[in-house]
Structure formats: structure tokens, C-alpha cells
Nucleic acid binder design. Structure first.
Lengths: 194, 194
DNA sequence: ATCGCTATGCAACAAGTTGTACTATAGAGG
DNA sequence: CCTCTATAGTACAACTTGTTGCATAGCGAT
């Protein structure tokens, strides 16, 4: 009877993914190969194949590792007023995109998602998590009676997050403090009771 | 003195890119290789290398070919009222993503953009073009006096387009008629004078 | 400590791709 | 007809994905 998993399995997994993450950050998805990870870790190529039969399996595990927990949304502030809470949370998302490795990693996952269902699932889950955290901010504002009663909170949360990523990854427009302030103003104008 | 370009050059270029576009649509960027295009066209691999020294050169030219003109935004309707004009244009963008090859091609360009500056330029230009067409709709509404005077038209156009692509490519949420109607309602609520 | 199981390491191999180099042929224009 | 050049064809090196076979080293159990 095997009660416990061979500790070598976990050690190999961790070392490989950790090294793959470094390569992912510095050189992109395509540089995450069996050979490069093998060289970086000393783990033999055949062992890597046994753990991850296809290269996308390894890459997707690296994506999952990258998507948590440092890069996840923090517990949002929900003390109010809405504008302050929104500014705080969206500034975190903006900083993550502009000034942390996540700004390099996210596009890599998006790229992989175009070809791979698993990668698509990773990026979808991550984005849902971002939207949910923003939604919590709006819901708290609604509980405090700050919002108009006609507003659709799901729509608002979608709007708040999507423009950030769209400008960064699709439109090539800057997302800086100046823009963020205007963006939050627009959202509040839409949401807050006059 | 050479006055005219050898017609074989243009013929080769066109045939190769046309074939590459078909492969791009059906099998993705990674399937666009010198070998696959050579096989599809009968053009020898060495000739392809002479036209496109790196494979990304060929892929980027294929992207440019894909980004025009059938997939570009049509002349937007600007007769008013705003809600009808917006609905018409955004429905076009939605249909392009859901029911035409562009829905498969766009993610491929986004994927390439994560690794390649030229591809990034292509997708950026294309998205700017989409935003501009939406902006024209808002500007016409503003000229008719339909809008509140506080609204920022650039922000509105960004919002209108970004959620579409975000939901489709990042969040994995459906973009259907039901959602579109709500989205347009939200935009109009933000923009239209009460 | 010994034994069996298994994870790992190592080497070789086939296939596909990128990119280079060289030669021969075919077509365009004067 | 002649020259220039685009194309075809081939060979080659390097890298990557996967597969396979075999030897070794470490883990858990008796």
C-alpha cells in the first residue's frame, strides 16, 4: 500500500515550475521549452516529459502558478465612498500591469489562450476573479445607498476592468494615473445617485 | 534603369499571403510556416525566405492582409438617435467576432502581439480604427445635442469597444444580442441628456 | 539492512521547423 | 538574342517536440 506520494515528485514539480516561471517572465512563453527548463534546473528532459507529456501542460501549470496568489486582487476596500474604493482597487490593478511581472505574464497567457483551451480557462478564471473584486466594491456602495437604483452592477464591473486590459494589450494606449482618474470619474458618474 | 517591378514579385507575394491567410483562419498562426505555405502554393521554400527573411515577417503581412478591408468597421450610421446608431455599429462588431473568420483571426494576432512589435502595431491600429468609428457615432449625437455636456467622448468610445473584446477574449463571457442590448442601454444612460 | 518499486538520468532516434548557402533553371525586359 | 534576376531545388546545421530503452539512485516497507 502506498500511503504517501514520493517526495521527489513534488520537488521536481516545484523546481521545474519555478524555473519555468522565471523563463516565462524574462523571455516569454515560447522560451519555456523542455530543454530550457532542463538546463535551468538540472532535471533531465525525460523526467520533465514524464511529469508533463506535452509542453503546453508545463506551460499551463506555469500560468496557474503565475496567476496566484501574489498577482490576485487584494481584498478590496469597501468603506466608501465609492470613488475612493474604486480608485484604490483599480490603482492596484493598474500598478500590477505597469510595474510588476504580471504586465509581461498576462499577455503571454492571452497569447497561449488563442491556441489552447486550458490556457483559456486560466485567463478566464483570473479575469473573473478581478471582475468579482470590483463587483464587491460596487455592491458595498449599493448597500450604503450610494448608487442609482437603475444601475447594473455586473455591467459596471465589466466596464471597470475591461478598459484597463483593452488599452494595455489591444489598443496600445497608456494606462496612467491621469487616465485612471478620468476613468473612475466616468464610472462614478454612471453609478452614483445624483 | 529598372522602371517597373518584375511582375513575378507581386504574384508571389499575393499567392503566398492569400494561402497563409487560409491557413491562419483554419489552423492558427503556428501553422503558418514556410513549409505549409510552400506546399499550399507550390512556391519553393527558398523563394519564400527571399520575400520574408523571418517567419514573423510573413505572418505579420498575413495579419495586415486580414485586417483589411472586409474586417474593418463600416461607415457608421450617424442619423440618430444615438441608441439606434450604437446598436447598429456594435452589432456589426459583435457579428464580426461571433460569426466571421475575424473571430478566429483576432486572437491569433493578439497572441503574436505578445511576442512581436510589428504584430502589436497591427492590432493596435486595428483597434484604434474600431474606436474611431464608434467615436464618430457619439460625436454625431453630440452635434445633434443628444448628449450631456459633461461626457468624455473618448472614454465612451473606449468603453463601448473594450468590453466586447474583453468578454470574448479574456473573460470567456458570451457576447450575444441580449447582452449587447444591455450594454448599449448602459452606454446611453451614461451619455444621453436626461 | 535488504528488497522491491519507482523516479530519475542518460542516450539515441524520428520528425518538423527555422535559417543559410549554393547551383541550376526559367522568365522579364532591353 | 542577351542580360539580369526571380524562382526551383537541394543540402545542411541547429533547435524543438516527442518516443523509446536502459541504467541508476532513492523511497518505503518488511
Amino acid at each position: 500500500m502506498k500511503q504517501f506520494e514520493d517526495p521527489r515528485l513534488a520537488a521536481t514539480r516545484k523546481a521545474a515550475i519555478e524555473a519555468a516561471l522565471v523563463i516565462l517572465k524574462s523571455e516569454g512563453v515560447l522560451a519555456v521549452t523542455y530543454a530550457s527548463v532542463s538546463k535551468a534546473t538540472g532535471i533531465s528532459r525525460s523526467t520533465l516529459y514524464r511529469h508533463w507529456p506535452e509542453i503546453n501542460d508545463l506551460r499551463n501549470d506555469t500560468f496557474k502558478r503565475a496567476a496566484r496568489p501574489e498577482n490576485k486582487s487584494p481584498e478590496p476596500r469597501t468603506n466608501g465612498p465609492l470613488k475612493a474604493d474604486l480608485m484604490w482597487l483599480l490603482r492596484f490593478l493598474l500598478t500590477a500591469l505597469n510595474d510588476t511581472p504580471w504586465g509581461k505574464i498576462a499577455p503571454q497567457i492571452v497569447a497561449a489562450a488563442a491556441q489552447d483551451d486550458q490556457a483559456r480557462a486560466v485567463i478566464n478564471l483570473f479575469m473573473q476573479e478581478r471582475i468579482t473584486s470590483v463587483k464587491a466594491v460596487f455592491e458595498a456602495a449599493a448597500d450604503r445607498g450610494e448608487l442609482r437604483d437603475t444601475v447594473d452592477i455586473d455591467q459596471l464591473a465589466d466596464l471597470a476592468v475591461s478598459v484597463l486590459y483593452f488599452r494595455k494589450l489591444f489598443a496600445g494606449q497608456p494606462i496612467d494615473e491621469t487616465w485612471l482618474a478620468e476613468h473612475v470619474d466616468t464610472l462614478c458618474e454612471l453609478a452614483v445617485a445624483q
